[in-house]
Nucleic acid binder design. Structure first.
Length: 270
DNA sequence: ATGACGCATAGCATGCGA
């Protein structure tokens, strides 16, 4: 069984590429982020005509997450419990479409799009950290209730956990960029302390291994990227991991997303 | 070559991304 995660940066703009990759890659479960559409505009038939069930959560042109599966799609949940909402300057907080969960062949999959902190001193940064802390609280509770639970927290985490996960850590530090700050990295490590493992890391060792390259400034051809998309696996799921890769071919050419898909292969099991 | 940002909107400028 293969599980993949991919921030597509608009599903409608990339429908042909996503369909082609879905067929070529042979993944059983595909978690998507940044569909950038509401349910009314979602290309349901793209998945259905290829044998995938699909669940989507999208409320505007921003964010949007989905899970497609050809091995079952049950108990769909939109937003995790107590998911923080972003409210600004007295405006009522809005619940954003950043998390959808479903059970696929015994694996509880969460497709997540972690908020962008924007800047270290921006009010989106505490929102990002609170969002992560709340998800981790629940994830650790799910494992406490069932230590054998097969849980995959997959998506665009908007954090580069290690120095080698960005092309120039000195520049990031000097400029005070987000994604590499200590509070963000600490929020990521908290998931590891809860028992979750970056399932792809061992099969895709760095340095210089990335999942995202900015459209600007020739970042892709210059191999200047960031590793920010992850499959975090619970212990029982991690025990089934037999391979992983980042499909950087999909970043090439006209009409590519700025993120590449991350694929994790699981042994039959349990 | 992979090549100098791209996507959304009831749009023609602006917000967002990381």
């Amino acid at each position: 069984m293969k599980i993949a995660t991919w921030n597509v940066n608009s599903l409608r703009a990339r429908a042909d590429r996503v369909e082609g990759w879905l067929l070529r890659s042979g993944v059983d479960v595909l978690a998507l982020q940044e569909t950038k559409c509401r349910d009314e505009n979602f290309p349901w038939e793209l998945f259905e005509r290829n044998g995938y069930e699909v669940a989507h959560f999208g409320v505007s042109q921003w964010n949007g997450v989905a899970i497609a599966s050809r091995v079952g799609l049950e108990d769909v949940e939109r937003t995790f419990p107590d998911q923080p909402a972003f409210g600004k300057g007295g405006i009522e907080a809005e619940q954003e479409a950043r998390a959808i969960g479903a059970t696929c062949n015994g694996v509880r999959v969460w497709s997540i799009y972690v908020p962008n902190g924007r800047a270290l001193d921006d009010e989106h940064m505490p929102y990002k950290l609170e969002w992560l802390a709340t998800l981790n609280k629940h994830a650790s509770e799910w494992l406490a209730q069932d230590p054998k639970a097969q849980i995959a927290l997959v998506g665009d985490w908007n954090i580069a956990p290690l120095d080698e996960d960005v092309w120039d850590i000195e520049m990031f530090r000097t400029e005070g960029f987000t994604h590499v700050s200590e509070p963000e990295r600490e929020a990521f490590r908290a998931f590891e302390r809860s028992g979750f493992t970056d399932a792809a890391r061992a099969y895709t060792p760095g340095p210089g291994v990335y999942t995202y390259w900015d459209y600007k400034q020739l970042r892709f051809p210059k191999k200047e990227g960031m590793r920010i998309d992850f499959v975090l696996a619970s212990p029982a799921l991690e025990a089934r991991v037999v391979g992983a890769h980042i499909d950087r071919e999909e970043r090439k050419g006209k009409g590519a997303s700025d993120h590449a898909p991350v694929v994790v292969e699981l042994a039959d099991g349990a």
